[in-house]
Simulated assay, not measured.
Amino acid sequence: MWARELAVSAPGKVILHGEHAVVLGKVALAVALDLRTFLRLRPGAEGRLSVSLPGVGVRRSWDTPSLRALRGRIAADGDESKSPSIEQLDALREFAGIAAGASAPDSLATLAFLYMCLAVSAKYGDVPSVDIVVWSELPTGAGLGSSAAYAVCLAAALLMLCGAISCPLQEGQSTARWTEEELTLINSWAFRGEQVIHGNPSGVDNAVGTWGGALRYQAGKITPLKRVPTLRILLTNTKVPRSTKVLVAGVKEKILKFPAIMNPVLDSIDAISQECQSVLEAMPANPSPEHYPVLEEFFDINQHHLNVLGVGHPSLDRLCQVTASHSLHSKLTGAGGGGCGITLLPPDTSPLAVEAAKQDLCACGFECWETKIGAPGVTLHSCSSLSAQVLHALAQS
């Protein structure tokens, strides 16, 4: 019987440098975004497991015997300790009434929840009767790691409920984090949740959600940076939809067409990522204004490179022009072709300048958040320590 009310949170992510070049073996830097997904655990009705995901319109409840029976089918179809099989996912879809091939966020979120719940409980013991509510500050489908933050929160909560990891929050504490060994286990299960949602994820998003800070990614190898300062940024969603698959294909086509021109561009993006890593690791935790000019130059150069690769967009050009008019430096983050951009906010930037930039960007039809990068990874909270906004959002479900 689970008797405590607690919350778990995990951050989203942005790519600081290395978009598209990373697909070709170059270095990328991914950083944790201080927009978070929150999962609340509360004791539930005996013999039932309930989940509510108000952001995607999911509210489901299952009785424990039905879940145990389904767990038996999942285990019979294959080794539950391996990545999800087609047979396992088909059984889950049938149980949940999800049509084959359904890819809407509500279907994928429900599928990931069921898979992780049953696979974790098959290995570590029954999940007790609880009510789970998940709410996120992250928009879905914007390339900000919202699905990974969800999977990380789920993994941490389910592993803790089954006793596979500790409950590190002591009486009187507001937050706590798990040991490195426990974080590694959380990350491995979160990756399996990401496999349900995305099929073949890189593992970067869930690693950022687990460890926070910043990570270096190259050729499948993920390495946390030794030290990461907390940097203020303006995150802007242009709301222009884009296809990552189409953009990646376009970059490859351009490289094949003009290798002598494009390969040096990729090498330069790689050098920016590596130089930026060195600068970040040498910066103090709370950098002063004089630390920013080199980071701003990296943003400017890399944005030009990404336009050369063909992944820019008029909306992103407009974003850069608007922020430049307020003496701020921006670049796209993620796949490009629309989507999101990030703007550095040095500590000496006046609040009036930030507000004016936000107003001008919103006037373009964009959505803005003033936030930070270098945020902590998955964290356990006492519910009383959460902000009024988060508590209200969780209570609304």
Score class of each variant (00 low, 15 high):
284 P>N: 02
284 P>I: 13
284 P>G: 04
285 A>K: 15
285 A>H: 12
285 A>E: 15
286 N>Q: 15
286 N>D: 15
287 P>T: 12
290 E>Y: 15
290 E>K: 13
291 H>V: 09
293 P>R: 06
293 P>L: 05
294 V>E: 10
295 L>E: 02
296 E>H: 08
297 E>R: 14
299 F>T: 00
302 N>K: 01
303 Q>Y: 00
304 H>Y: 04
305 H>R: 12
305 H>L: 14
306 L>D: 01
306 L>S: 07
306 L>T: 03
307 N>V: 11
308 V>C: 07
310 G>E: 02
310 G>R: 06
310 G>T: 00
311 V>H: 01
311 V>K: 00
316 L>F: 05
318 R>I: 00
319 L>K: 05
319 L>G: 02
320 C>Y: 10
321 Q>L: 00
321 Q>D: 15
325 S>F: 03
327 S>F: 12
329 H>P: 05
329 H>M: 00
329 H>F: 14
330 S>I: 03
331 K>A: 04
331 K>L: 09
332 L>R: 09
334 G>R: 07
335 A>T: 15
337 G>K: 07
337 G>I: 08
337 G>R: 08
340 C>M: 07
341 G>C: 04
341 G>N: 02
341 G>Q: 07
342 I>Y: 10
343 T>L: 05
343 T>A: 08
346 P>N: 13
346 P>S: 04
346 P>V: 10
346 P>E: 03
346 P>D: 08
349 T>P: 14
349 T>V: 15
353 A>K: 08
353 A>L: 09
354 V>N: 05
354 V>A: 11
354 V>I: 02
355 E>P: 06
356 A>R: 13
360 D>Q: 12
362 C>D: 09
364 C>H: 08
366 F>V: 09
368 C>D: 09
368 C>F: 07
368 C>M: 06
373 I>V: 15
373 I>R: 11
373 I>D: 11
374 G>T: 01
374 G>Q: 06
374 G>I: 02
374 G>F: 14
375 A>H: 05
377 G>P: 01
377 G>E: 08
